[in-house]
Design a protein around this nucleic acid. Sequence first.
DNA 1: TCATAAAATATGTTTAAACATACTGAAAAT
DNA 2: ATTTTCAGTATGTTTAAACATATTTTATGA
Lengths: 242, 242
Amino acid sequence: MKWRIDPDLTLPLHQQVEKIIRTLVEKPEYQSGLMFPKEVDIANELGIARNTVRTAIAKLVQEGILVRKKGVGTMVVRKKLLTRLDHWFSFTKEMEEKGRKIINYRLEVKLVKAPPELAEIFHIKPDTRVVEITRLRGDEEKPLLLSISWFHPRTKVQIEQDFTRPLYKVLEEENNVYVTLSREDISAIAATNDLAENLQIKPGDPILTRNRTVYSSDGQIVEYNQVFYRGDGISYSVEIGR
Amino acid sequence: MKWRIDPDLTLPLHQQVEKIIRTLVEKPEYQSGLMFPKEVDIANELGIARNTVRTAIAKLVQEGILVRKKGVGTMVVRKKLLTRLDHWFSFTKEMEEKGRKIINYRLEVKLVKAPPELAEIFHIKPDTRVVEITRLRGDEEKPLLLSISWFHPRTKVQIEQDFTRPLYKVLEEENNVYVTLSREDISAIAATNDLAENLQIKPGDPILTRNRTVYSSDGQIVEYNQVFYRGDGISYSVEIGR
DNA sequence: TCATAAAATATGTTTAAACATACTGAAAAT
DNA sequence: ATTTTCAGTATGTTTAAACATATTTTATGA
């Protein structure tokens, strides 16, 4: 084979192996059911311990990308199952996949005093200033969602930053924040006057709301996000692994 | 301390440790921020290798129950954050946590011919007979949700089975089906006459619907489930890891 | 031929040990 | 008083090796 590990690199071996496997997995052979190389072989090939390969594989198994069976071997889970995984954080991507053009009807970034409920969620003192982003987005025809985000002061998000790019990329590249987990609360409500006006529907029409708390890799709260979807315009897809 | 491992038990050590930690984690001391025992101590205490303890802890970290920091230690993630983890498959559990008693207003199990849309989802011939379960559930006051499930013929679900128990347990224990992944589609709609009657609301009232396709560990479709939640009565929570 | 037993396979479990690295806090130097 | 240095602490990384167990394949015997 052709992959190698780089002993000089600071990145831990098992993470390098993880990366290698992630690209390997994409190969069509494996997508169509070919048995994945056995861990002993991979270890020998790369000249590292079997155990190290195991930790890498374990991670991928955890993510549902690989499946293993004692005495049999390792297989790649069919790609179909994996679509949309990894996409939950990007509305833009989701819409683009459906072939719809996204229009930002409004994008507002401002510094506001945290209301009590938000302060409680963020574990900060009320009236602490936080960055608030309001987005009204949709397709050519009509607005589809109203989104309001607040960022924890810890993230050091600034109002000058460019929020037209995908949010998680901005956070990673500019703020060194790595988003890993989101906890969400979804419910259906009737549109208030304010919401109805924004989303160009009638008051009382069904609206899908999603309250999302986003956590970084170290378990700390990054963002609190509230979205109101037009009930007719969109359906929200999630994918959950046990 | 007082916990022990049982060397005779067939259960692997690290799984036993995992169990021990799971109960440990519940202790109020740890809920309120006390540092978790260090892995070396746990290993010594139980008389097993540090590595074994590590694999157990790693699992819990993965689940977001523990957080570790190099040079510092291990901490339990605040309980509040954990509610509902792992519970997406059990409505009963979710409600019980809120201290509400669940009432089954209706439970219907019957064999029906698969309508075309379902046949398409299941990749089976239309009119193939499938088991359909209809549930109308709620609390003492009112029905909160109407759920309709269909099971793929492959699962060999029989109408005689006891569906009053948690569904995923029935599938595991009686049908040898291990549910691992679900793909969901959530949207808000206005209640139809039929739905309004069932859920005791007015036609046009907001309803949260969820279409869920449930997959087993080998990636095959197990169940297709449609749920209609009263918009006022409930909010639906999910948790998504990247 | 067919069922059964044995061997080969591949992952799963567990231990032990050495070294790396991030963080904390105390001691030393400025 | 403040910064710098250094030792201590707890987790992170990696290796090596032995044995366990589930599965498949091969060989064996009725």
